[in-house]
Design a binder for these strands. Structure first.
Lengths: 148, 148
DNA sequence: GTAACTGCAAACGCTTTGCACTCCC
DNA sequence: GGGAGTGCAAAGCGTTTGCAGTTAC
């Protein structure tokens, strides 16, 4: 979860020459207050209560904006739709291959080994996406034979 | 690049109770003989010369099959279409954020640090996707101001 | 006041599906 | 021979776009 104050959000948008609209604030607050990896649909459904007229187009446009500015990253797709990750810090996504649930973890050893690795490669990463595919405990317990 | 003999491919398919068709062989050979990360469209165009009647549907179905069986991994999307990686071994994808080119690298230190990391996490990864987003040398040289 | 934003609907493009025909086993 | 696979066309669905009306500044 990324804690961000509304006032900071406003100056963030203004800084970029972008207008601060209620819709944008709502979308940002929704995205950055979650600690999961929502799809556009999930964001839309959650906002529809408070903003009944909000449209998918606006959400797509705002997420596009946040992605371009580097505040958001795509974590891959699940059931055909993109999932977003508000956490741009170095971390690992544990992706359950059965239920699709994504959990963030930051292994203690990760920061140091990652800096060694990237300096070995001689590149300056803008960002990274580290997904580990596994079977989560919940799904591991259930004795369903996967249909593969 | 994954070197795989046609005879191995055939027994691989048979093993899984799948029929060996010329189309499937062609698709497999196309995918596994490349060392880039082709889209469905690229595979289709390359095969159309030799198999003028091959259809996108068949390619989609075959790639789906290979993915289910674990011989292929999605590396994310570029321009709206999925890119596939025939390399299921532990490696890093260097993804240029400007031209979209993807390069595989295997840092010397990676295998050991990765096994430390996963054992720390106490999980058994089925696979992983390690993408590093950067600007490749070709794009870094060109003095275009990114429109972001 | 005006340029940017919203939201609707239509368009778009990648992917999946249904189905008749074909072919591997 | 029979069931699985192919390929065509159509449908599906997430996403983008055009545009008229609205709003932030």
């Amino acid at each position: 979860m990324i804690w961000i104050k509304t006032s900071d959000l406003i100056s963030l948008l203004r800084e970029k020459g972008k207008k601060v609209t209620p819709q944008r604030l709502a979308i940002c607050q929704e995205v950055f207050s979650r600690d999961d990896h929502p799809s556009v649909e999930q964001i839309y459904l959650n906002l529809k209560n408070k903003y009944p007229t909000i449209s998918l187009a606006t959400i797509y446009k705002t997420l596009q904006l946040l992605k371009e500015k580097g505040y958001l990253q795509e974590v891959g797709t699940s059931n055909g739709s993109v999932r977003y990750d508000p956490n741009r810090n170095l971390h690992v996504n544990l992706v359950c291959t059965k239920c699709g649930e994504i959990t963030d973890v930051i292994p203690k050893t990760l920061p140091q080994m990652w800096s060694v690795l990237t300096s070995d490669l001689g590149i300056e990463p803008q960002s990274q996406l580290l997904n580990i595919y596994y079977t989560c405990k919940k799904c591991g317990k259930i004795g369903i034979i996967p249909n593969v």
